[in-house]
């Protein structure tokens, strides 16, 4: 037997194997994926974004034939990692994860990725905003908080992200919605904000619920309200803003995306893969245990969601003087 025959036979075998695999998979994605898929996280390992991505990778890998790897490309408040994905080869093997600060960065950083450079493939879920105060402030509900600030503008120090970050925007949206003014004290990320509130440096915080669930139960911190449509499963005793008579819904969310230019069939494959993964009850259970709310959406809905956030954030950013690039024409 000469070499050509061996090679031909090998090719035949490979083709047969591929056929067998293809038969068990959606027809559109016969040749995809063949290599490991990478999820690029734009924040350091250990944070919320990272934990969410690793959970998704773990469960999605069970539904596909290739490994799913998580890498962290960090810096510039998350813009570096997003830019890394947007500039990657549009072959569908590089997937990114973004939060609502992606929307803000478009207007604050000339190097940030804009929404037309990406194709959203799935929404993981919201990270609802909430309002927490130290127990020793004596404030027990949202109305009391707003009253205190109306009587004495700027009298409450609030711990939040730097301008453009998720919890900053929640605070700014709240100021706008209720016509109040707090003294916003910026912290680098959630953990230092938690420490700041516990140490008594600030009186309130606008972090997502899961950061304070334990302290709320222990009584040190009171979560005044959840800025979502429904109560949060970690603290079912805390009413929403709406239940207390204030129409206010705000917060962060997480979504997966690929760079613009990925072939349609591959986008479809990834959308199916991740949407189905996130709809899996076992996944939802694991994510809930880690403190995440899961409400999966498909690509088109995710894009609509991003655009809605954009409309909501833009006036706030403009008011705060944060819009330096991509200014919209009025």
């Amino acid at each position: 037997m000469d070499h050509t025959t061996i090679r031909a036979l090998a090719r035949l075998g490979a083709a047969a194997a591929a056929l067998a695999v293809a038969a068990s998979m959606p027809a559109a994605a016969q040749d995809f994926p063949e290599e490991p898929i990478t999820i690029v996280v734009n924040f350091p390992a250990g944070g919320g974004q990272d934990t969410a991505a690793r959970l998704i990778a773990e469960y999605a890998a069970q539904r596909t034939t290739v490994p799913i790897v998580v890498t962290n490309v960090t810096g510039a408040g998350g813009a570096t990692g997003t830019r890394h994905v947007a500039d990657a080869e549009p072959d569908g093997y590089t997937v990114g994860i973004i939060g609502s600060n992606f929307v803000a960065q478009q207007y604050m950083n000339e190097n940030a990725t804009t929404v037309d450079e990406i194709i959203p493939i799935a929404l993981f879920g919201p990270d609802p905003g909430a309002l927490e105060v130290r127990a020793d402030t004596g404030i027990t509900d949202v109305a009391g908080y707003i009253e205190a600030l109306r009587a004495n503008p700027g009298s409450i120090t609030n711990g939040n992200d730097a301008p453009g970050g998720g919890s900053y925007i929640v605070a700014a949206l709240m100021e706008r919605a209720f016509g109040i003014e707090m003294t916003k004290v910026p912290y680098q990320g959630y953990a230092p904000t938690v420490a700041g509130l516990l140490a008594g440096e600030v009186m309130s915080a606008t972090l997502p619920v899961h950061q304070f669930a334990d302290q709320h139960k222990a009584g040190e911190v009171i979560i005044l309200g959840v800025a979502a449509d429904e109560r949060h499963f970690l603290v079912p005793d805390v009413p929403t803003f709406r239940e207390q008579g204030f129409d206010f819904v705000a917060g962060d969310w997480r979504a997966l995306f690929v760079p613009a230019g990925v072939p349609e069939d591959r986008v479809q494959y990834l959308e199916d893969l991740f949407f189905e993964t996130m709809s899996d009850p076992a996944f939802v259970e694991a994510a809930n245990a880690a403190g995440f709310v899961v409400t999966p959406m498909r690509g088109a809905d995710t894009l609509a969601h991003i655009l809605r956030t954009d409309e909501e954030f833009y006036p706030v950013l403009l008011d705060a003087g944060l819009v330096t690039v991509n200014q919209k024409e009025e």
């Binding site: 350091p44 390992a45 250990g46 944070g47 990272d50 934990t51 690793r54 959970l55 953990a191 245990a289 880690a290 403190g291």
Partner: peptide
């Protein structure tokens, strides 16, 4: 922070 992430994942 990474250790805490590991705990959260579990």
């Amino acid at each position: 922070a990474v250790l805490m992430g590991a705990l959260l994942l579990h």
